[in-house]
Design a protein around this nucleic acid. Sequence first.
DNA 1: TGCACGATGAAC
DNA 2: TTCATCGTGCAC
Length: 183
Amino acid sequence: MQPLPREFYDRDTIQVARELLGKYLVMRRGGGERVGRIVETEAYLGPHDLAAHSSKGRTPRTEVMFGPPGHAYVYLIYGMHHCVNVVTQAEGHASAVLLRALEPVRNLEARCQGPGLLCKAMGIDRRLNGHDLVSEDFFIAEPEQPQRIAIVRRPRIGVDYAGHWAKRLLRFYIRDNPCVSRR
DNA sequence: TGCACGATGAAC
DNA sequence: TTCATCGTGCAC
């Protein structure tokens, strides 16, 4: 399995969010290899998107979002759960795609439906913030035999504070997949 | 220096 | 519906 090239991430964020569905998230740190199939994502469209962390401006926390594409933006939420995003588009664009749920493929026994559970199952924490996904130990790859999928669009979860941005259909998931966090 | 509040998950 | 738990951004 080959890591997706940086050009994959250096594109329109909605396009990346859709195309990440069905891809494999691979973790080769700490011994064995853990692999999950991405079944649910959300797009965060830069500083003007009031639901995006980058709407707060360039801060120590959001620094990675403002950086080059293809890097992991990992943060702690509610003091106890981690969430992982992939940075998209050109440096300074400050957009990203949140990975919300996986379907277990290899060495994933724990449930991984929801961004916090996904990180727990894959062993992702803030030490991986800024990690380059164009690498050999933590990356995203095209599966050997890609499946044909139907994509459902819904409003993003937990962003009711974001005004009209909360209504945008920026959450994507694989139709009828049982591992999606919410219907 | 203090404080309100989450891109959540689990229990009740 | 409530709560655990703490880093972040912003008010003072």
